[in-house]
Simulated assay, not measured.
Amino acid sequence: MSEALQVVGAVLHRDGQVLACRRSPHKAEGGKWEFPGGKIEPGESPKSALRRELEEELGLVSVSVGDLLTREVSNSNGQSIDLACYWAQASEFPVVSTDHDELRWCSIYELSDLDWAVADLPTVNALQTSATTDTKAGSVHE
């Protein structure tokens, strides 16, 4: 079996919502929803890779990457994917993406209404589990 692809994702949050991005139809898993991010390049730290990917995909130049939320290895289309998702905030909000055909701000509870890429499901589950046990139900990490 091949080595897992090292990937990072951002749980961008604002006003109790998180950003979900739908992969363009011509991409692998086109039409599936994911958290924005991408591959870690050789010599990059995960947080540096995430900042680079958010600038490339969403045009975000001022991003604060916070704590690790989840890290899981999953299998998608025969490829093992090691996805680490981090909390993140940006000074501006993205309106277009180079890799996605739709961007949507969702409450934690609305996330389960979307058809997620396999690798992102553990993060969706962690967010929803956290929200149901949080005394401020529905709040997002601040």
Rank of each mutant, 00 (worst) to 15 (best):
L5Y: 08
S64N: 15
H141V: 10
G43D: 02
V61Q: 15
E56V: 09
T123K: 04
E41F: 02
G16S: 14
T133N: 10
P46A: 12
G78A: 14
D99C: 14
Q17P: 04
G38H: 01
A20H: 04
V140E: 10
K32C: 01
E55P: 05
I81D: 07
W87E: 05
D67A: 15
R23M: 03
T129P: 02
V61C: 15
Q89N: 15
N75E: 15
V118R: 12
P46T: 10
H13D: 08
G16I: 07
C106K: 06
V95H: 13
E44M: 04
D15E: 14
A137T: 09
H26A: 11
D113R: 13
P122C: 09
G43W: 00
T98S: 13
H141T: 05
E41C: 03
A88Q: 01
A84W: 00
S107F: 06
R22Y: 03
P36N: 00
G43V: 01
G9C: 07
R23T: 03
V8F: 03
G66Y: 09
E57L: 12
D115W: 06
W33R: 00
R23H: 07
G16M: 07
E110D: 14
L103Y: 03
V8L: 04
G30K: 01
T132W: 09
S48H: 12
Q6H: 06
V95R: 13
R23G: 02
D82N: 03
E29I: 01
A28W: 03
L127S: 12
P122A: 10
L127P: 06
L12C: 10
A131E: 09
V7Q: 12
P122V: 05
A88D: 02
H141W: 08
N75W: 05
P25C: 02
H13E: 11
A88E: 02
D99H: 12
H100D: 10
